[in-house]
């Protein structure tokens, strides 16, 4: 399956992503097999509030990239229901014109409880697409606004999409997620007020920009007509060059690697401790807690103690 995926077989790629997304016992093996092949693709994050036309914009971006002969992978994340864990994933609908193009792979993911705008395994999904030969991987975030900071950790270039008349431009600035953007896209630029939003954003950038590194460009697009897409593309390319050649970029990459290791450690700890707790969560413990015969701190220590063995043996599940 892994070899098939690495050679570009769509079904195999899709299966691998499912394995990793479901965190099956094989997922680590898969990711380790992928790892040597990663690091080639340009990972682009697209974020912005609902209604900003992210999906349509991504669809147009795919078109531009394809005209230049590049292969594209897309991961579009939509929120999962906190009640049922299910999700309706409908970003793809805007990109269906690319179905049937063997150079495009689109995958929808539910956020599955994560709050940072991505799902826990979005990054792994992107790495698989990278390893399996996609030149560019675009990640479209959930887009509920304020806490979407995960994308900055995993993308080479983050595009923040704004539209006139939504009032979200100022919201975003206030919420402080401006910093995550490598560039701003004012979409639906044929609408009234687009110039005003662009001017406000430019002013903000001027006010907050310190030092001499990358200055966030502001690009106007219309996903409906395709206007401004070529310029946007050039800017994104320019940013990649900057990332790959500058000190800033090297720093970013280091941070990402560090985060990756930390993330894996965090996940393993969580898994082991969760299962250790599950094993101990007999009625008896709860009963004791209820009767104040013990306290949560002591139980926690017991859980950790019992998990220690698992840590040492590197047991995952």
């Amino acid at each position: 399956m892994i070899d098939k995926a690495l050679s570009g077989d769509v079904r195999a790629i899709a299966r691998l992503i499912s394995e990793v997304e479901s965190e099956t016992p094989r997922s680590e093996e898969i990711m380790r097999a992928m790892y040597p092949h990663t690091g080639r693709a340009h990972i682009i994050g697209v974020t912005g509030s609902p209604g900003s036309g992210k999906s349509s914009l991504v669809s147009k971006m795919i078109g531009t990239l394809r005209r230049q002969g590049k292969t594209v992978g897309v991961i579009a994340v939509d929120p999962s229901s906190p009640f049922s864990g299910g999700a309706i994933l409908a970003d793809r609908i805007r990109m269906q014109e690319h179905s049937g193009d063997p150079g495009v792979y689109i995958r929808s993911m539910g956020s599955r409880g994560s709050l940072g705008g991505l799902s826990k395994t979005t990054y792994e999904g992107a790495l698989i697409l990278d390893a399996c030969g996609k030149d560019v991987v675009i990640i479209e975030t959930v887009g509920v606004g304020q806490s979407e900071i995960d994308i900055v950790r995993i993308a080479d270039t983050v595009c923040l999409v704004l539209v006139p008349g939504m009032g979200d431009d100022m919201q975003i600035m206030k919420a402080g997620i401006m910093e995550i953007a490598d560039l701003f896209v004012i979409n639906k630029a044929d609408r009234e007020g687009a110039d005003k939003v662009a001017a406000e954003v430019r002013l903000m950038i001027k006010m907050f920009h310190t030092g001499d590194g990358w200055i966030q460009p502001v690009k106007m697009t219309s996903a409906a007509t395709g206007a401004g897409l070529d310029e946007l593309h050039d800017t994104i390319e320019g940013h990649l060059k900057h990332v790959r050649s500058s000190e800033e970029g090297a720093e970013r990459l280091k941070k990402r690697l560090q985060w990756e290791v930390e993330e894996i450690v965090r996940r393993r700890i969580a898994k082991i401790t969760e299962s250790a707790w599950r094993e101990r969560r007999e009625e008896r413990v709860i009963e004791k807690l209820l009767n104040k015969e013990t306290d949560p701190y002591r139980v926690a220590q017991e859980v950790l103690d019992s998990a220690m063995g698992d840590f040492r043996s590197g047991q995952l599940l």
């Binding site: 349509s56 309706i88 409908a90 409906a224």
Partner: peptide, 10 residues
């Protein structure tokens, strides 16, 4: 004129 694409809200 171009074509309309539906706006899905579920």
């Amino acid at each position: 004129f171009g074509e309309y694409k539906e706006n899905i809200v579920l």
